[in-house]
Simulated assay, not measured.
Amino acid sequence: MAPRKGQQIFQATLELLATRGYEGLTVEGVAERSGVNKTTIYRWWPSKAALLAAALVETDLLAMETPDTGSLRKDLEALVHGMIALLTQPPAADVAVAALGAAVHHPELATAAQHFFADRLARETAVFDRARRRGELRDTADPMLIMDLLAGAVWLRVVFRGLPLDDDFAAAAVAAVLDGVA
């Protein structure tokens, strides 16, 4: 498949997900919106969950730059700011919430979400590798746990509690994880 056509299909997939939710996302709708035949889509992706999984990983809509500020603390704050933007600014916020919310009820999509998060953690590993080389992070520290604590804090505040995040939230969350709360 031509890269441009693939991006059109992914864009149509994410637009429909954002506007109609996972239940309203159909291969037929994606085909119509992207201007391709649905058999073309099924040739590359066997289901709408597989199509959505590819769209989430292959597009830049939910991508975040991996920061390199020279400091673990500042890199983590930048990552938290990126997560906040993803969950508060349309269309990324609509896509993220719809996709991950649907993953709870659809095992195939849950597998796609696991792949998505594994891909993101692999991209963030450089932050932790640099921090270890600078002596800011012990070798036994668990990057996944650190990112889960930070991302969980953002998700809970924004998505589940519906609370706004002030400018100091990223620094406070990172301080709580790196320094503890006692």
Rank of each mutant, 00 (worst) to 15 (best):
A103Q: 06
A31I: 01
D148L: 15
D139Q: 10
A113V: 09
R73F: 04
L87E: 05
L86H: 05
Y22R: 00
A102F: 02
A175N: 14
V57N: 07
A93I: 07
P91L: 02
W155F: 15
T111L: 15
E77Q: 13
A63E: 10
Q8Y: 11
L100C: 11
R4W: 08
M64I: 10
L61Y: 05
R132I: 04
A102S: 09
P46E: 11
G152A: 02
A96V: 12
I41N: 08
G21I: 02
T19H: 09
F160H: 14
Q114C: 11
K74P: 09
V27Y: 08
A172Y: 09
V36F: 03
L163N: 09
Q114H: 11
A171L: 01
P164T: 10
A102C: 08
A151S: 15
F160D: 14
V174P: 01
A170Q: 03
D168V: 08
A85S: 13
V158D: 03
L178C: 06
K48T: 06
L79G: 05
V127E: 00
G135A: 00
Q11L: 12
A118S: 15
R134C: 07
A92N: 01
G162V: 04
P107C: 05
F117S: 12
R123L: 14
L56K: 06
L86D: 04
V181D: 07
A98S: 08
G82E: 14
A63P: 07
A92Y: 03
V27A: 10
E58S: 09
E32W: 02
A122L: 06
D179I: 01
R138P: 11
Q11M: 03
N37H: 14
D179P: 00
R20N: 10
G82A: 15
G152D: 03
A96K: 08
E124R: 14
W45F: 15
A126V: 15
A182C: 11
T111N: 13
V27H: 06
T66Q: 01
A93T: 08
W44E: 14
G180Y: 07
V177T: 13
R43P: 06
T19Y: 03
R132C: 02
R20S: 12
R134H: 11
T125Q: 14
E77A: 05
L56D: 03
V30F: 08
D119M: 12
G82L: 10
V177K: 10
D167Y: 03
V154G: 09
A172Q: 15
R133D: 07
Q7T: 07
K38L: 07
E58M: 05
V154D: 11
H106M: 08
Y22D: 01
Q11E: 15
M147E: 10
E77D: 06
V159M: 06
V181Y: 11
T59D: 04
P3W: 13
A18R: 00
G70F: 04
M147H: 06
L109F: 06
A172V: 14
A151D: 14
V181N: 08
A99S: 02
E136F: 04
D60A: 05
R138N: 12
M83C: 11
